[in-house]
Design a protein around this nucleic acid. Structure first.
Lengths: 217, 217
DNA sequence: GATTTTATTTAGGCTTACCTAAATAATATA
DNA sequence: TATATTATTTAGGTAAGCCTAAATAAAATC
């Protein structure tokens, strides 16, 4: 078993690598809310443990072993999030922070029980995919709502879970994963996007729209 | 929030004080599986924080503040144990170790949800009382099975949860809390005790019988 | 190409909670 | 009472994981 800090770093590197082409020390440090110096120290350690490929000044990436652990942690996290939402009715804007603590104390046995009770789910409450036990994840190429044009129809697949304020806002508008919609209007110059879903019109600013990942239907 | 080590020490002191008239450094150290020197260090710290009354060479006891925290931790632990057993079907000989990890990451909000789902229970799967939110515990004076004589009837209230081997043994015999029984025979010289419960006779060695807490009916 | 700015690393410290070994206090025994 | 045994504490050290400040490398700008 690795320390919580090691697990957190691996998870962070994995997540950053998904959306940045180079994971730098300072990016990682900012993400984890530590100083770059602390991140440097941990990166050396991760390299030492063969969990990350790291060359000074050149950024970092995960080794296969590191990625495996990262995916295990993410699997724990997302299973717990879903369990909290489904079984304990924790509102979706709070599951993230609770799961952040639980993911590190979940035994494999309990993971299996939760997985079974939930019926081997494939996505967490925000629509993020739950990695398999063996470390495979479905990673469909998604658009964000800002990529669409008036007239297009789609379905919400996932929403960013980093800001709970955003989640409350979306929840209040009933914009959850699986929600279908039609784009009615896209105002120019990064203006608001108007959509129709569940028979009501909703107007979203472009920043919010950028946090909503969709699939065209 | 206190560190996990602080919480563990407070809980240990509370539990030891229940059954020993003096909680010494070495007793505590043995219970927590650390060296007496380490325990001394933590006791100084707990005194410093006003959580424990401690005089060198004189043993330790909890202050009111310390006891409050200890009871909160124990409440968390026992609620989680029960939840694991009821909701996730974790066998009763394993709930203790899982709860040991969870008790430190349980938010008050989640505690409330679990408490409500379980219907505000008063005892964990081993029959140990669950402290109230405000820190009150029912502490009935219990006998152990070894205190009884042939012919007496009783009900199992609680069993010791420290040894999972014991729990499996008792579980195999269906001797859970709430089980009613009649003492048929008590062999002399700490010999085996024969009881009848659920229409079958069971013979228990005196060591095992000493771990079973009962109430006469 | 020289200089400034930004990114990153190194150096040295801190805290928590543990350890071992040595010293001292309390208790038991002769 | 003197001595031996046991219990406890003190002293000094280790490992993680964080910090700040100073040094250095890389990139951007003149």
């Amino acid at each position: 078993m690795h320390t919580q800090a090691v697990e957190d770093y691996l998870k962070a590197i994995y997540k950053l690598a998904e959306r940045e082409d180079k994971v730098t020390t300072s990016l990682l440090a900012e993400f984890l809310d530590v100083t770059p110096a602390s991140a440097t120290g941990m990166l050396k350690k991760l390299k030492q443990m063969n969990l990350a490929a790291y060359e000074p000044y050149q950024g970092v990436s995960l080794t296969e072993a590191g990625q495996k652990i990262a995916l295990e942690v993410i699997r724990h996290h997302r299973l717990v999030e879903l369990y909290l939402a489904e079984a304990l009715n924790v509102p979706w804007d709070r599951v993230h922070e609770e799961a952040e603590k639980w993911e590190h104390v979940l035994s494999e046995d309990l993971e299996d029980r939760i997985d079974a009770i939930l019926g081997h789910p494939t996505a967490d409450p925000h629509g993020a995919p739950i990695p398999d036990r063996d470390g495979t994840v479905a990673m469909p190429a998604l658009s964000t709502l800002t990529d669409l044009e008036a007239g297009q129809k789609g379905i919400i697949v996932e929403v960013s879970d980093h800001d709970s304020e955003l989640l409350r806002y979306l929840g209040a508008m009933n914009l959850y994963p699986e929600t279908e919609f039609t784009v009615l209007d896209v105002a120019p110059f990064n203006g608001p996007i108007t959509i129709r879903s569940e028979n009501s019109e909703k107007i979203l600013g472009s920043e919010v729209a950028g946090y909503i990942y969709v699939r065209l239907t």
